[in-house]
Amino acid sequence: MRDSSLLWILLAVIGVALLALLTSRDGSVAGLPDGQFAQLAYYGAWGVGIGASLFLLRSVRLGEALRHAAIWAGVFLVTIAGYAFAPELLAVKNRMMAVLVPGSVVALPSDGERRQYMAVRGSDGHFHLSGTVDGESVSFMVDTGASVIAMDRAMAQSLGIDTDALSFSDFVQTANGIARSAPVFLDSIRIGDIERRNIRAAVTDAEGLDTILLGMSFLNTLTSYDFRGDTLILTD
C-alpha cells in the first residue's frame, strides 16, 4: 500500500471521528461518552500512524523517510490539537445545535458546581424548549408571566389528563391575562438533563395555546435563569 493511501485513510478516520463528535446530540458516540470516544480516536490515530510509519520505513530511502515523517508529524499535530481542544469543539457543536435545531436545549461546559443549559430565541421572539411531560415529548414556551406551567384542554388530553374530571374553579395568570383553570400536578418535567418531579401546573378553560407555557412553578426551582440577548441560560 502506498504512503498516500495510508495518509488518506488516517485522515478519513480522523475526519469521521470529528464529525461524529460534532453531530452527536445526546453526549455520546457509538455508546461511549463524548470524552471517551475522543480519547479512543486519539490513541487509535496514533496507533495507526506509528504502524504505518514502521511499515513504510522498511522499504524507502532516507530522504523519502524524512518526507514521510514530516507528513505524519503534521497529521499527529492535527490529531493532538483536536484532542486537546475537544471540550472547546464540543461547546461549539452545542452552540451550533442550539441555533440550527429549533427548541434545542444544549449543555454548556460545566464549571464543576452547577450544570448549565442554553437555548436560542425563536423567530417569533419567544424561547421554545423541547422536553417531556410524564415521558411524552412536548414543546414548551418560556413565559415568566405565567405563575405555573399552563396548557389548554387539548394539550392536557394529549398527555392523558382526564379534563372532564377537572374542576375549573381557579384562575391562572398568563402573558395573555387571567384565565379560568383547573389545578393539576405533573409527575415529571424534563428539559435537557434538568428534571423536576411533582410540579404544580394548570389546565386552562380555553383553546388555542398550542403549546405548554413554562411558568414560574418550574422556573423557580432552578438556581437561576438568565436572558442574555437572544439566548436563555438555565442553571440547574
Rank of each mutant, 00 (worst) to 15 (best):
P87L: 11
T235Q: 14
R2E: 09
W72V: 12
L7F: 12
P33T: 01
S137I: 07
V92Q: 08
D152A: 06
V60N: 13
S53D: 10
D3S: 15
G49A: 15
S53K: 15
S169V: 03
D226N: 11
S158I: 06
D143Y: 02
D164I: 04
A150T: 02
F127P: 09
G131W: 15
I71S: 06
V148C: 01
T163F: 13
T144D: 03
G215P: 07
L186E: 04
A202I: 08
D205R: 14
S217Q: 01
S4D: 05
I161N: 03
R196W: 12
A146E: 11
F218H: 04
A201Q: 13
A81I: 11
A86S: 09
A91G: 06
I14W: 14
V172K: 01
D162Q: 01
I149K: 10
I212Q: 04
I189S: 08
S147M: 00
G192R: 00
R2S: 14
I191R: 00
L66G: 04
L57M: 14
N94V: 03
D170I: 06
V92A: 13
N94M: 00
E88M: 13
A154M: 06
S4R: 04
Y117G: 03
D111F: 05
R114F: 11
V148G: 02
V133L: 13
I191F: 04
G160K: 11
G215Q: 05
A150H: 04
Q39R: 09
E195H: 06
S169P: 00
S130K: 14
D236P: 05
Y83P: 00
V106G: 08
A98W: 13
Q116R: 15
R115K: 13
T174K: 05
Y225G: 00
D170V: 02
I191K: 01
L222H: 03
G15D: 10
L166E: 00
L186R: 03
G27C: 08
S123T: 10
S217F: 02
A156V: 02
N198Y: 05
F85L: 07
M1E: 08
T235D: 15
A107N: 03
G208C: 10
S217A: 02
M96G: 05
V133R: 09
E64L: 14
L22M: 10
R25G: 04
L56N: 09
G215I: 11
L129Q: 03
Q173F: 07
S5L: 12
V48T: 12
R180T: 01
E136F: 14
R2I: 09
L40M: 13
I9D: 07
S24T: 13
I178N: 11
S188G: 05
